[in-house]
Design a binder for these strands. Structure first.
Length: 579
RNA sequence: CCGCCUGUGGCGCAGUUGGAUAACGCAGCAGAUUCCGAUUCUGAAGAACGGGGGUUCAAAUCCCUUCAGGCGGGCCA
């Protein structure tokens, strides 16, 4: 909330507390502790601008009906020198408060003073947070799920940043391990097929996408058949060394196009090379959490999680039902599993000083969450400082029909394709209209439309409209100037006040989004802001009113413009002055 | 079988640390618009929150149960 709004809430807390104390002193209420009440914004503005449930939560303590308690509080309430004019008792015992004109003027002043930084707060107190998102496999092109993860992760990071966290964006590149081996075998088969045709069998679990064939062809075009003569290992290495950087660069350029700037692209191979993976294995061994079986090294996941869940108060039956299993750390063939590398990676993150780790994952990985957190606990870190945002699937729709995407057929809709078809503004905004945990049907037709059906367009339009209004007034030699409090207090139409209230809520909205790891509330917020602005402009005249009121309204327009712009800039969405 | 997620007007979706007449958009109906750019606004109609049971002064929100859909339960990631 704006500074003014924050002050208003504090004033109210104090006033209500004082009133209760006073009522106890003069005997209107029985002796008791002051109940824990809250100050909230009622859903319906008819119920005041702020309200408290103090009377209701006090019902038990005071052994009186809420309505009566509310009456006593009201009788002893002093609102002099606050941002409030009056209060009313309503419903089951709510006490509703109404803002004074000075409040609204204060909000507009806050926005004017803070400008670009209006909305930012120090809620996060500079705490170091890492948001790791997308982290697609470099074995093939990125898909729609990555598109959603990108928009969600980047905007989540933005919201945390605006809330005063020290945010770091990271992409984990799985450039090692099993899937790279699969990648290598796939490339090798495609390469050999160029020269030997179909007598070369393609590995059953290989990557079937056209991109693999293309990469093999590209290698052949540039380097010929020299790899026919060398042994398989050498051949695969040459192909991977050729193809992998190409894929990684493509991911980097796609992300850049998508306006996502990572602080770091972290290579999994570094973890292996530097011995960090081995170190984690050794650490787990030391803790007695491993054993050997069937030639593999296992991690006692079941034991760790059972203890953790029991400590959390889960029943033995619940735990039994989960059928927890142990996990392999080192395969029979001597290679560490993805899980092992992941433990090492998250340990590395903590060791770099991040206090909170946020991972954005596809929901199909949810089975991995608990065991990774458990493993972090097991090696002496706080698993609860690792938060995983799970993201449901994206379905691509065109003309109301599902657009199939399948990596296998090679005809998949890729992130690159999407960005060619859909404006980045649209993609970033639309993917942030649905919470991570709900499946999305991404409407391609909607995403490319340039009309009010497309929310990003609607919001941008509101901003452009304000710019246009300002310009039009300038043509009439009217320029915005700072207003006096008295002038700002001339704003008292309901459309004006509602609009200002919404402006005042911006900072809090960002903080809530940060707390919930849910940037999607901000797109809703700004859409609502655009609507409220249109309503205001429809109901109130700017030009032609007396000078003071005109200036006050012009100032209101500018405040709205500031906030819309701040939202769009925060999300890296363009904010055109005219459209 | 077990676990996680989802289920709100014709459609799309908010609201879920319990609270006051369940919010909004779209399509549809009826209107408005002497400041900018009709890519705007207003009004009426439409859901009792998948079903059932329970806790509570108060439940879309919590508990139990049931139905439907998605995902998961690899020496895949």
């Amino acid at each position: 909330m704006s500074k003014t709004a924050a002050i208003a809430v504090k004033q109210l807390e104090k006033a209500v507390t004082d009133a209760i104390k006073k009522a106890i002193e003069n005997g209107a209420l029985p002796q008791s502790e002051i109940p824990q009440f809250i100050i909230e914004t009622p859903a319906d503005r008819k119920n005041g601008d702020l309200a408290t449930n103090a009377a209701m939560v006090g019902a038990r303590a005071f052994k009186m009906p809420p309505f009566k308690i509310a009456g006593e509080i009201k009788n002893n309430l002093v609102l002099d020198n606050t941002f409030f004019t009056k209060c009313e008792i309503a419903g089951p015992g709510f006490i509703n408060f109404f803002f004074a004109p000075s409040y609204y003027a204060g909000v507009l002043r806050d926005i004017e003073n803070e400008g670009d930084s209006y909305g930012r707060s120090d809620f996060g107190k500079g705490k170091k947070v890492m948001v790791e998102f997308v982290s697609a496999n470099p074995t093939g092109p990125m898909h729609m799920g990555n598109a959603r993860g990108g928009a969600l992760g980047d905007c989540l990071a933005a919201v945390l940043d605006a809330s005063g966290y020290d945010v770091w964006r990271e992409f984990y590149v799985n450039d090692a391990g099993n899937q790279i081996e699969k990648f290598a075998c796939s490339l090798e088969a495609r390469y050999l097929q160029i020269y030997k045709g179909d007598e070369i069998e393609f590995p059953e679990d290989g990557y079937q996408g056209e991109d693999i064939t293309d990469l093999a062809k590209l290698y052949a075009d540039e380097n010929g058949d020299s790899l026919l003569k060398v042994d398989s290992e050498t051949r695969k290495k040459a192909l991977v060394d050729f193809a992998l950087p190409k894929n990684i660069n493509k991911m980097k350029s796609d992300m850049a196009k998508y306006r996502i700037n990572y602080d770091k692209w972290f290579m999994e191979s570094e973890l292996h090379k530097s011995g960090q993976v081995q170190a984690v294995v050794d650490l787990l061994k030391e803790k007695g959490l491993t054993y050997e079986k069937d030639g593999a090294l296992w991690y006692k996941n079941k034991e760790v999680l059972t203890n953790k869940l029991l400590a959390e108060g889960k029943s033995q039956k619940y735990i039994d039902n989960l059928e927890l299993k142990d996990d392999v750390l080192i395969r029979q063939n001597g290679n560490p599993t993805y899980f092992t590398a992941d433990i090492a990676y998250h340990k590395n993150k903590f060791d770099r000083g991040f206090e909170t780790l946020i991972d954005v994952w596809g929901a199909d990985h949810h089975g991995h969450v608990m065991r990774l957190k458990g493993a972090m606990d097991a090696i002496g870190y706080d698993g609860d400082s690792l938060d995983v945002v799970l993201m449901q699937l994206v379905k691509l729709m065109r003309n109301g029909e599902l657009v199939r995407m399948s990596k296998r057929t090679g005809k998949a809709i890729q992130l690159g394709d999407l960005l060619e078809e859909v404006p980045v503004d649209s993609a970033r905004f639309l993917f942030n209209t649905r919470e991570a945990n709900t499946p999305v049907d991404f409407d391609l037709d909607l995403a490319v439309t340039q009309d009010n059906q497309n929310p990003v367009y609607y919001v941008q339009y509101a901003h452009a409209r304000i710019c246009s209004i300002i310009k039009s007034l300038e043509n009439d030699a009217i320029t915005a100037r700072a207003c006096t409090d008295a002038e700002l207090m001339m704003l008292r139409e309901s459309e004006e006040l509602e609009l200002i209230n919404h402006l005042a809520a911006y900072t809090d909205e960002i903080i809530s989004a940060a707390k919930d790891y849910d940037p999607t509330r901000i797109t809703r917020y700004v859409t609502q802001l655009a609507t409220l602005f249109h309503k205001f402009y429809n109901a109130c005249r700017v030009k032609g009113e007396n000078e003071g009121l005109m200036q006050a309204r012009l100032n209101l327009c500018i405040a709205v413009k500031t906030v819309i712009k701040n939202v769009l800039m925060m999300f890296n969405i363009t904010c055109p002055d005219k459209m």
